[in-house]
């Protein structure tokens, strides 16, 4: 039995949570919202037609792995990463790290996390857990969605780390390798905020950032024509709620986390002006949650006529307008304060 001393904590999101948890256990005192904000985790992209998706979909955060990379660039913290083409090698390295008392984050397919009730599990290849120990039949896992350390069967972890399909984990592992004695939080926070604003406002691609929210608003009224039947449309509209609220932490949740980041940043770098932006972002998060709930209600009740799709479209346009104004103001403010 190997068990690395590890303080487990729940988190809002698996990737920012596992990064934060590893850093905390390595001695760096930092919160999850601070990791999320510095690494410009907040984002939006709408995909109407993509080969990898059978139906339009969207994301509300930057791509998996980007948080860790951005955090590294802005703070000087370095992570050691590993990918594998052979499971045997992937497990040899994992066991060696645990033998060396190093807790390690692993990218996994969420479906195989058998300590989570079956009705909550879906196939998503970008869930992150921290492995902190093992015995003959199971690994000891810190999962930010679970209140305590849990046991995961060796076979389940094998399937989870080497699942196939879109964004397959390929046994990916990471752990902190270097933490600087001093981190320039002033610069890191400002860069994190500026880049978030840039990503939401300035990328000249029509499906990214605010433009992506607007595209979603325009295209959602076309969804009925893309669906096979009412059941299929209902499933896809219900999935809006799943993507916004259930998987990771969703549209509202990420926005609440960004609001908390601004609140903490205001104190950390003595910029009380950010407090007002924090409060406004909380309200924006509430708006996403209302949209999510409306989509879920319509989907659940199979109430999906043109008028209902138009209502969803209008709410999305409101979100785009609110976020456009917000990020323009924040972009301007962060340059001046």
């Amino acid at each position: 039995m190997i068990s690395v001393p590890y303080k487990h904590k729940m988190a809002a999101h698996c990737e920012s949570g596992s990064i934060t948890s590893l850093l905390n256990n390595a001695g760096l005192d930092i919160t999850e919202p601070m990791v999320f904000g510095i690494s410009s985790g907040l984002f939006f992209a709408y995909f109407h037609k993509m080969r990898s998706f059978t139906f339009p979909t969207f994301i509300v955060r930057n791509k998996p792995g980007q948080m860790r990379e951005n955090f590294t660039k802005r703070t000087g913290v370095k992570f050691k990463t590993y990918s594998f083409s052979h499971p045997e090698k992937g497990f040899l390295v994992l066991d060696h790290l645990l033998d060396s008392n190093i807790p390690v984050a692993a990218q996994v397919d969420f479906y195989y996390m058998d300590y989570i009730p079956s009705w909550e599990r879906v196939h998503i290849n970008v869930h992150f857990i921290v492995v902190v120990g093992k015995d003959d039949s199971a690994y000891l896992v810190s999962d930010s969605y679970f209140p305590e350390l849990v046991s995961l069967r060796v076979e389940s972890l094998r399937k989870a780390r080497f699942a196939g399909g879109n964004m397959s984990p390929k046994g990916f592992l990471f752990h902190p390798e270097f933490i600087p004695e001093e981190i320039d939080y002033e610069t890191a926070i400002r860069k994190g905020i500026r880049k978030t604003c840039f990503n939401m406002l300035k990328i000249p691609i029509p499906f990214l950032g605010i433009k992506g929210i607007r595209m979603f608003a325009k295209k959602i009224v076309e969804w009925p024509a893309l669906a096979r039947d009412t059941e299929h449309l209902s499933h896809e509209v219900m999935k809006i709620n799943v993507l916004l609220e259930d998987q990771g932490t969703g549209g509202a949740g990420f926005r609440f986390m960004f609001a908390t980041f601004l609140q903490q940043a205001a104190a950390k770098i003595n910029t009380p002006q950010l407090l007002d932006f924090s409060k406004k972002m909380m309200v924006i998060g509430d708006g996403w949650r209302e949209f999510s709930l409306l989509a879920a209600r319509f989907g659940k009740n199979r109430d999906l006529g043109p008028q209902r799709m138009k209502e969803l479209s209008d709410l999305l346009m409101d979100r785009a307008k609110a976020e456009e104004q917000y990020f323009n103001e924040l972009y301007k403010a962060i340059k001046e304060i």
């Binding site: 809002a12 969605y145 609220e245 990771g248 609440f256 998060g285």
Partner: peptide
Amino acid sequence: IRITDQSQARY
């Protein structure tokens, strides 16, 4: 009182 994320909500 806001429940701000799904981990907190599940719990």
